[in-house]
């Protein structure tokens, strides 16, 4: 189990003067499910690429399990933090689905038995178990994206970071991503995901971090960050609260980011209004 901690993180890309990440302090405890939300260019991807050492801080520190990520190789960090990129076509190279999924597991030094087990499990979790021998390029966009997810799942890292896993997915793909996150959570793994889908975020995560211009502007539970007092901040970042929140607001209820929360609040109100005799 691993704790992640960012202290005063600042990142300025080479040949740029913009602070892509501009002073972020963030602590993510073991087993948390954290969604990072914000417009493109708000620093989300830059931030998560520090977690496995792909980017080094311009200022500040990144601590993975207490040790400074700047002193570790990316290859060492890859055993602890698995990062799935947004575009699967920037990683897929193998001639079969199974070989693609095996790549990462082999790199982190799993033995054959563990590897076979991990690969089969990752394929099953992403609904690709029937496609072991398929050429990845014969899969459609959304299944290629699930393949990229499977290839990192098979590395069995204690931390899983997903960059826009639901972008371009159909409803089944979104369900699979949701179930992968819930399963990883049940195993005690930490999950951090960037997403543009507020409904998915509210349903799947315990904590939502909202970024704007390289800074964290909101950080809390879905009920908190999507509550009406936060709507003006959301609006400034061009974000809309999930639909059930908006319905709840019209009914005079607050903090109803999911269908279940909306129904629960309606039930509470109904039972309050029943005159006790």
């Amino acid at each position: 189990m691993i704790e992640l901690r960012l202290e005063g993180l600042v990142h300025v890309y080479r040949d740029s003067t913009v602070r892509a990440v501009d002073g972020v302090d963030l602590q993510v405890g073991p087993g948390q499910r954290v969604a990072i939300v914000g417009q493109n260019g708000s620093g989300k991807t830059t931030l998560v690429r520090h977690l496995n050492g792909l980017l080094r801080p311009t200022e500040g520190r990144v601590l993975v399990d207490g040790s400074d990520a700047a002193r570790l190789h990316v290859a060492q960090l890859a055993r602890r933090v698995g990062l799935v990129f947004q575009d699967p076509d920037r990683q897929i190279f193998a001639r079969s689905v199974r070989a693609e999924v095996e790549f990462g597991a082999r790199n982190v030094g799993m033995d054959r038995a563990d590897r076979n087990d991990a690969v089969s499990q990752a394929l099953a979790a992403t609904g690709l178990e029937g496609e072991s021998d398929t050429n990845p390029y014969d899969l459609g966009d959304s299944r290629r994206k699930l393949l990229a997810l499977a290839s990192v799942l098979a590395m069995r890292t204690p931390v899983l970071v997903l960059d826009e896993p639901t972008t371009g997915q159909d409803v089944r793909g979104v369900e699979i991503v949701g179930s992968v996150i819930r399963a990883a959570h049940a195993e005690g793994r930490t999950v951090i995901a960037i997403s543009h889908d507020m409904g998915f975020v509210a349903e799947t995560f315990d904590r939502v971090v909202i970024m704007r211009e390289g800074r964290i502007v909101l950080d809390g539970s879905p009920a908190g960050v999507f509550a009406q007092r936060a709507w003006s901040t959301l609006e400034e970042t061009y974000l809309e609260p999930p639909f059930p929140s908006r319905v709840g607001a019209r009914l005079g209820l607050d903090s109803t980011p999911t269908d279940e929360a909306l129904i629960a609040r309606l039930r509470e109100r109904a039972s309050d209004s029943v005159p006790s005799t």
Binding site: H73, V74, A75, F85, R90, G104, N107, V152
Partner: peptide, 10 residues
């Protein structure tokens, strides 16, 4: 970057 994230040693 994507391959290094999957443990490729460069």
């Amino acid at each position: 970057a994507a391959q290094r994230a999957r443990g490729l040693d460069t």
